[in-house]
Design a protein around this nucleic acid. Sequence first.
DNA 1: TATGAATGAGGTTTCATTCAT
DNA 2: GATGAATGAAACCTCATTCAT
Lengths: 218, 218, 218, 218
Amino acid sequence: MNEQDLLQELMKASEEDKDLTPKQAKILQAAIEMFAEKGYAATSTSEIAKKAGVAEGTIFRHYKTKKDLLISIVSPVVTRFAIPFFADRFVKEVFEKETNENYDDLLREIVYNRFEFVQKNTTLVKILFQEISFHPEIQQLFAENFLEKVYPHFIKWVETYQRSGDISKDFPVNTVLRLIMTTVIGFIITRFVFLPHYDWNDEMEIEKTIEYIRKGLS
Amino acid sequence: MNEQDLLQELMKASEEDKDLTPKQAKILQAAIEMFAEKGYAATSTSEIAKKAGVAEGTIFRHYKTKKDLLISIVSPVVTRFAIPFFADRFVKEVFEKETNENYDDLLREIVYNRFEFVQKNTTLVKILFQEISFHPEIQQLFAENFLEKVYPHFIKWVETYQRSGDISKDFPVNTVLRLIMTTVIGFIITRFVFLPHYDWNDEMEIEKTIEYIRKGLS
Amino acid sequence: MNEQDLLQELMKASEEDKDLTPKQAKILQAAIEMFAEKGYAATSTSEIAKKAGVAEGTIFRHYKTKKDLLISIVSPVVTRFAIPFFADRFVKEVFEKETNENYDDLLREIVYNRFEFVQKNTTLVKILFQEISFHPEIQQLFAENFLEKVYPHFIKWVETYQRSGDISKDFPVNTVLRLIMTTVIGFIITRFVFLPHYDWNDEMEIEKTIEYIRKGLS
Amino acid sequence: MNEQDLLQELMKASEEDKDLTPKQAKILQAAIEMFAEKGYAATSTSEIAKKAGVAEGTIFRHYKTKKDLLISIVSPVVTRFAIPFFADRFVKEVFEKETNENYDDLLREIVYNRFEFVQKNTTLVKILFQEISFHPEIQQLFAENFLEKVYPHFIKWVETYQRSGDISKDFPVNTVLRLIMTTVIGFIITRFVFLPHYDWNDEMEIEKTIEYIRKGLS
DNA sequence: TATGAATGAGGTTTCATTCAT
DNA sequence: GATGAATGAAACCTCATTCAT
């Protein structure tokens, strides 16, 4: 149920069919590191080339523009960040077969699942969050993926558990969603982006976070 | 109990004693707008100059470097973002006189207070959050202000309410703090940064958020 | 027989009649230091202003342009570097009264005299030599002063001592002049510009230099 | 025994292994001309680019900074100005085989040799002398080359001829060296830098200069 | 495929100088 | 006389991108 390390997937193939050359892989890796460290705008293609150990021209043989490079890094993150779990899982288990999983287990699975995803892809997620507000292309990608594929499923899921009494009906559906996402994402970002070096007890924090959500929405 | 509009404060004086020239004010305003819109690194000083209606050289008469300009915009936000409320208020009311205010009222005041702060200074807060991860100077400023001035008070406040039974003792103090901050900041950012154009019912959302925190930590 | 410290003279008055203000004196002093240290072109007027402790505008109240400032520093050096000794002294003593001074004493006096001049005005002389090749104005100043006022006297002086047998007639007059000047100036420049920190025994070096010239030309 | 034209050597290769591109050669040539004419600080990279017929960016592809360009022009001059003759020649002939060459011939060879060197590289030598006092990097280069490679040989050479009676023992070794260098360099600089347009009789001047040195030190 | 020289537009910053106060 | 804010041109340098090899 675990998705692959995105980084590795990225390395394997960008357009599903053709493998990327070792140089291209080096370029991607270098770009990811630099973008995360200094930001997209503050990173120069020549820095990337140097760090990747390739000639400047080589970057532009694989990516028409610098922005292309960014998009090709960020776009799989967008699709994977929300999708796999919901798209693959929800459709089949939650809605098609009608709630056969209990609320608490599902909540726990969401948190663990996203936690691991970010743990494996901290750098990529960092880049996504840094750049999304400046690049309409990414925003659109995000909207398409989230609004069309995840949001509707999520809404139905909340309604289901409001009917079962696990979530209070006093909270509007959208508010529930916002509170859950805020809490989960807030935790994960604090954990991996703001205070990665703090001495975390991950399991405890996750459990407390779940408890907080459950009680908060009850 | 409300702090001033930061933007206006910035305009009035930077170092308390000497007013800034009209041109300097124009520069600050233009820089703030551009930094928020395109990001610091992607904004050129010539754009700022043009938007401010001054010669490019004028910027550098007032700010030694472009980064200086950023710091002088962001640094008051850092000091004001967390401080006034806690520093001024907490010390006097909560700790000196010993909890004469009830938990719910205080929670509500925090949320409303920070909400209004960001509402008035959305642009500045946006810039701060965008840039903090790339500029050690800002990080340090933030650490100094938060860790030294806010954090200790906050911890004592949580312990007080854990003793009074408002907050469950099952949650470690730091976890409580993280959950509250995450929820409040997450809400405010969603409200003003991610989805500013959504048709919000602010009062309701605030009340639900408070309810969520209260129940979540009980 | 000693000329004044040029620096002090400069300070007293630039155009003979009106004293310069303390600010102007500060500017001159600062400019001299900076020009010597970094060169004219590499010194900015704002650096000078800062070092002089005056506002940038103040410099231009006293000197129309930056080059004006240079000229007003360098021009008294040009006039004094060669002139006083020869003009004042030669005319009267050597040519009017006909050689009443012996060759060796005169040679010694020239060397000591110029040595002291440079010793007192090292910085100014340095600036003159550095800048003369880039500024036609200075070159002309130099030509006017040297060619018209010093050179003819010098030539006559050499001829006098060639007739008296002190200087060999095998050397063309111009060559004699070049050899003497080269030796004297070369010594002084080595002493004060190239190796000012070497542990010099000035008196010995001067005496040996004179001996070298005397024997070399005999 | 004649060294190559430095200019041409510079053009051929800077780091011995890789040839420089035609554009790079153009840049060097243009920079040399401009630096000699206006001085390093007063020459702009855009002027150099224009004169070289390349884009300004091209300069910085080959030389990281403007100063780099200066150093790469000046540094071969420093190494060649003093070295080849002494290092190659002295070691073998004067010290290894013990004085088999007579004083007068050696003196003559030094003067002719350096004369020709400067004759072929006037511009480069001019730049070196103009800039050395402002650039510690060049000073160090010079010190390293002169003090370590030339000076010791020279000292031994003087002592040899003091023993043979060609040079008087009344002069301290360092003073002899200073007088010779001053006279030779002074002549050459007068010839090529100060008064290049005077109608020189080179052979006569050289011979007289040698005679002056010989007699002066005897 | 990969290179790296070349580009020219544009980046930040400095400069000498002016002028209202 | 002195200031220092303001300027705009030009300084050095970096950039993303192209193209001949």
